[in-house]
């Protein structure tokens, strides 16, 4: 029964997204939907390393930026076909993820945050440095868009990009669902739950970590490429604190370590930010407050709400939402 309901919900979710452009042609709605879908892909793939893997990988958004820049540079400056954009983005992002994972293998806790964050800053410095190639501070502009014959993906309010992003989201959901119930996924979770125990049961630590990073980096690479072709630019802001904080709040809002939490987080948050758009920078204040409130009172995010409600109904607010975190 529960699985049937679940399947129905998934089908309904994608049916609505597939049908949306048919009933609504508004370019603003289209843009917001594309952005929300892209965020959903970014956040739910981040969930693989940060949520399931428990590795505090703060380089995930840098993988996205690396994918976007690699695509932009190779298709614009070096004349590769835009259709090579996505493979280029994925290859660059996965390569970057393996590079950053090597030091991570030797480190724990705060050092993982620092080294992954420093990696993003290193990429940023290189981007700023190589102005001829990357456009430096001003960003890389006029990245060639995707076209099939005379049909541009920008036609009909970017309908091509919309469905391309949606297809990537579908693939992401499929992969994350498979991952969560695969032997590989168990190994990743086992290492998060208890690393020495997992190693003592023959779980290969380094190989699993590297594969976790590589798998989670495929999606930001793909979305980075498509994003660069959609907005036709890549900017140094993609390496910034604000972008990282925004994505992090989506992940926390949705709930780490679940398939649907991060996707819900991305959609709810993107729509929320648009609703709050008239507030200007004020909406970032709301964002910041929201993150802290979630961490304080809903450490499991949206995904934890059903359990929270169940506890309320049973009248046991004393039940811990955080079984592992109490000292």
């Amino acid at each position: 029964m529960e699985t049937k309901l679940r399947t129905a919900a998934i089908v309904a979710f994608f049916a609505i997204l597939v049908a949306l452009p048919l009933v609504n042609g508004d370019s603003y709605v289209r843009h917001i939907s594309i952005i929300a879908i892209m965020y959903a892909v970014l956040v739910s793939s981040w969930n693989i390393s940060l949520g399931y893997g428990g590795v505090f990988n703060f380089a995930h958004m840098a993988f996205f930026a690396v994918g976007a820049y690699a695509t932009g540079i190779l298709t614009k400056t070096f004349g590769f076909s835009p259709w090579f954009g996505m493979p280029i983005g994925i290859a660059a992002s996965v390569a970057a993820s393996i590079l950053v994972c090597l030091p991570v293998l030797r480190l724990k806790g705060i050092y993982v945050i620092l080294v992954t964050f420093a990696f993003g800053q290193l990429c940023l410095q290189i981007v700023l440095n190589q102005r001829e190639l990357t456009g430096g501070n001003f960003g890389l502009v006029q990245i060639p868009p995707l076209e099939i014959g005379t049909f541009s993906f920008r036609d009909h309010q970017n309908i091509g990009y919309y469905y391309l992003a949606l297809a990537i989201l579908g693939l992401t959901v499929a992969v994350v669902s498979w991952f969560a119930r695969s032997r590989f996924g168990w190994r990743v979770v086992a290492l998060r739950d208890n690393e020495p125990y997992a190693v003592s049961r023959g779980v290969p630590l380094s190989r699993t970590r590297l594969l976790t990073f590589a798998l989670s980096a495929v999606f930001p690479g793909a979305i980075g490429a498509v994003y660069a072709q959609y907005v036709r630019s890549a900017s140094p802001d993609m390496f910034g604190f604000s972008f990282l904080t925004l994505a992090l709040s989506m992940l926390l809002l949705g709930g780490t370590g679940t398939v649907w939490g991060p996707i819900a987080g991305a959609f709810v948050f993107t729509i929320l930010s648009e609703v709050m758009a008239p507030l200007g920078p004020g909406r970032y204040l709301v964002t910041a407050v929201l993150i802290v409130l979630i961490l304080r009172f809903f450490p499991k995010g949206l995904a934890g709400i059903p359990q929270f409600v169940a506890q309320l109904m049973r009248g046991s607010r004393t039940g811990q939402l955080y079984p592992t975190e109490s000292a």
């Binding site: 979770v189 086992a190 998060r192 739950d193 208890n194 125990y197 997992a198 592992t324």
Partner: peptide, 8 residues
């Protein structure tokens, strides 16, 4: 001490 993968 009893050890497990608590979320599996």
């Amino acid at each position: 001490t009893e050890t497990d993968f608590e979320t599996l």
